[in-house]
Structures are given as structure tokens and as C-alpha cells.
């Protein structure tokens, strides 16, 4: 019974939502948007579970002096400070309904001067990792890898003004060989064709996966084995 009820709900909701795509009339027309709203409401409440789990896992580590407990301390402190600053609007309009982002409030300051630079730093790491991954991956090991390598060269240079200057001497009749034009061609022809092929495969995979879930053939995500 515990497993049958979710399967029945999945089947009914899945089928009705598919039908509602084709029927704009009430009550079907707005079912999709209503279910989206229901999901968001559930997700908001589920955050309490997430926050609770975070405090429980890291609280345990601190209590038991787990080998990396100082990191847990930083996590819990960060969580509590941001939550209290936001909830009680410290330094801003008093009361629970005040503006969270009021200039000068503690939450706003933490957001601007701690959170923003930390996030930007993490994203900036990508540039370094792209460089090291490119160094390792772009090797002309075989014919396919060589084509990939050449394409990477053209794109990398084509995205810079240096690439424009490098081939700007070419006569007008050979302008298609200019690096920026080659880069645009690679992006809009072979890249786009490949992306679309992958997207078509993904769309079909999604259909099959969704049908397996709606029909109850796939039920591992419910914590149950398929029969």
C-alpha cells in the first residue's frame, strides 16, 4: 500500500498533465501552472528538512569532535548568522516584514561583501580549470582528436580581437577563412548540428523515462525495486 499510493498519484497526475497540454479549456488549461505552484509550496516546506539536516549532520560532527569538525563549525556559524541577520533585519527596518535588502542592513552587507565575492571567486576558478583540462585533453592522439584540437584553436582565437588581426590580411575572396568567420561557422554549423542531434536523443530519452515513471515500470526513485 505504501508503494501503491505514490504510483497511483504519479500515474494520475502524469496522465492529466499530458492531456492538459492539448486542452486549453477549464479545468485542464491551468493545471500545469497550478501543479508548478504546488511543487513550489512543497519545496519551501522541504527547505526546513534541508536546514534541519544540515544542522543535525554538522552539529553531530562538532559534538563528536569529528576529524574535520572546525569546517562544520564554520558551516553552522555561517548558516545561523545569515539566517538571524535576514530574519530579524539586523541594522535595517525592524520587524519580520521589513525590507531584507535595505542598504546598510547586516544581511545586505554580508551579501554584498562576503557572499558576492566568494561566489565570484568560485566561478572564476573555472578559468583555471579550463586551462588545465585543455592542456591535458587537447592532444592530437588520433584523427578525431586532431580535428577537435584544431576546432578548439579556431574558437579560442576567434573569440578574441587577436584572432581578427591574425587573418585580417586575407583578400576579400578568402574572407571565409578568417579566424572569426571560421569560429562562427564551427559554432553555427557543426556545433549546432551536434547539439541538435544530442537534444533530439535527449528528448526521446526523456519521453521514455517519463513513460516508465508514469506507468510505474521505473520505481527506484520511490525507494522501491521495479517488479
Amino acid at each position: 500500500m505504501r508503494r501503491q499510493i505514490p504510483l497511483v498519484i504519479t500515474f494520475i497526475v502524469g496522465s492529466v498533465l499530458i492531456i492538459s497540454v492539448f486542452i486549453p479549456h477549464k479545468p485542464f488549461g491551468r493545471l500545469g501552472e497550478n501543479f508548478s505552484v504546488y511543487f513550489d509550496i512543497i519545496a519551501v516546506f522541504a527547505f526546513i528538512l534541508g536546514g534541519g539536516n544540515l544542522l543535525r549532520v554538522h552539529g553531530n560532527r562538532i559534538y563528536r569532535k569529528h576529524k574535520d569538525w572546525p569546517y562544520s563549525m564554520v558551516t553552522v556559524a555561517g548558516f545561523l548568522v545569515m539566517m538571524i541577520a535576514g530574519l530579524f533585519k539586523i541594522g535595517g527596518s525592524p520587524g519580520i516584514t521589513g525590507d531584507l535588502t535595505e542598504p546598510g542592513s547586516m544581511f545586505e552587507e554580508l551579501y554584498m561583501y562576503v557572499f558576492t565575492p566568494l561566489m565570484a571567486t568560485m566561478f572564476a576558478l573555472l578559468a583555471f580549470f579550463v586551462a588545465s583540462a585543455s592542456y591535458r585533453a587537447f592532444r592530437a592522439k588520433n584523427r578525431e582528436a586532431t580535428i577537435l584540437l584544431l576546432a578548439a584553436f579556431v574558437i579560442l582565437l576567434g573569440r578574441t580581437p587577436f584572432g581578427v588581426k591574425l587573418t585580417s590580411w586575407l583578400p576579400g575572396s578568402l574572407s571565409f577563412l578568417e579566424i572569426p568567420n571560421l569560429a562562427t561557422w564551427i559554432m553555427s554549423v557543426p556545433n549546432m548540428a551536434g547539439q541538435r542531434a544530442i537534444l533530439i536523443g535527449i528528448a526521446l530519452g526523456v519521453i521514455a523515462m517519463a513513460l516508465r515513471v508514469i506507468l510505474g515500470v521505473e520505481r527506484t526513485y520511490l525507494g522501491a525495486d521495479s517488479d
Partner: peptide, 20 residues
Amino acid sequence: GEELFAASAYLSGEPKQLGS
């Protein structure tokens, strides 16, 4: 891409899943 969605059927080895 699609291999991701095929994976659980592939790992399960069940005929019904593979049929999809």
C-alpha cells in the same frame, strides 16, 4: 544525453525497462 536516461533500464536488466 540519452544514455543517462537509458542507464537505469540498462543497469536493471529488466525486459520491461529495456523495452522502453
